[in-house]
Write a protein that binds this DNA or RNA. Structure first.
Lengths: 148, 148
DNA sequence: CGGGTGGGTTTGAAGAGCAAACCCGCACCC
DNA sequence: GGGTGCGGGTTTGCTCTTCAAACCCACCCG
């Protein structure tokens, strides 16, 4: 978290929740159904103390929840909240860019219910057109930041 | 970059390019038309040395390019490459999640050419349906990672 | 009893981030 | 020609994170 003045922005806000190193990879695992500490640690390759801190933060911020899955000894697993589930488009767009630009074969492919391999595109909810290059104009709540 | 074994993944790959602190905010500024070092530094609130490192990396990795805009003294500005422009959906989905879940009014609203305020949604390119909850099945190139 | 598993916390060294100061070439102004 | 200011960084010295490895605890298995 930067303490200096910066442009007020929902991108920065979202990154305040999921922007630390490993957080997005943790979410990827939970989306794939991996919910336990050790398995997540193995799959993302994070140091255990850092992973513990990330999980705490993601729970605090309402993206994951800790769910008891056994007593004696008490063991918890991590699940997506509704807000967490709504991060799916973020992961999909990150994956799509990587698949296209990193110069390797996609390590994971998602088949969509429609029968095709998923290729996610981001469209305007109103007109359903893909958001093209010059098609947006920004309106700033605080005009002081309009030009930069 | 973690050096330990981890799931091969395009999300991780993309984060290797834009996942360090401030990188996405730098891209936000360039998308908004802010291209010069000082202005970017002001708007993202990053220390100047860190910003210099981030810009170097983003140029190296082909997301930005340094363009001479005056000689005497030589001055460069930073512009998106084609690969960089294709990160727009990543920024839009991050913004959309923040607008919905951070509990404040959106600081920036984009008007789309269709006349409405942009609400980005991520759909399957083939069937144009929004990617819903149980609608995907993962297929792993390396089956060792299939279950986690 | 000894070993293994799950889910962490502790420790000490190494690395990254930080604010502030500095530098350089130039333009402007008097 | 001397001072001021700007753009675009780099250097400095300190602090905060991250890291790998070790440790801990409760329990189960044989």
């Amino acid at each position: 978290m930067a303490s200096k003045t910066q442009r007020p922005c929902s991108i920065a806000g979202t990154l305040g929740v999921i922007g630390e190193k490993y957080s997005v990879l943790v979410l990827r695992e939970v989306f794939l159904g991996v919910r336990r500490f050790d398995a997540i640690a193995r799959n993302v390759g994070a140091p255990r103390d850092v992973l513990a801190a990330r999980l705490r933060r993601l729970v605090e911020r309402g993206v994951l929840e800790r769910v008891l899955y056994q007593d004696r000894p008490e063991r918890y697993e991590y699940r997506l909240t509704q807000a967490g589930r709504e991060l799916r488009p973020v992961l999909l767009t990150l994956m799509a860019w990587g698949d296209k630009h990193l110069g390797h074969e996609p390590p994971v492919i998602f088949e969509h219910d429609c029968g095709n391999d998923l290729l996610p595109v981001t469209v305007c909810a109103h007109c359903r057109a893909e958001v093209a290059e010059g098609s947006l104009r920004a309106r700033h709540a605080d005009p002081a930041w309009a030009a930069g």
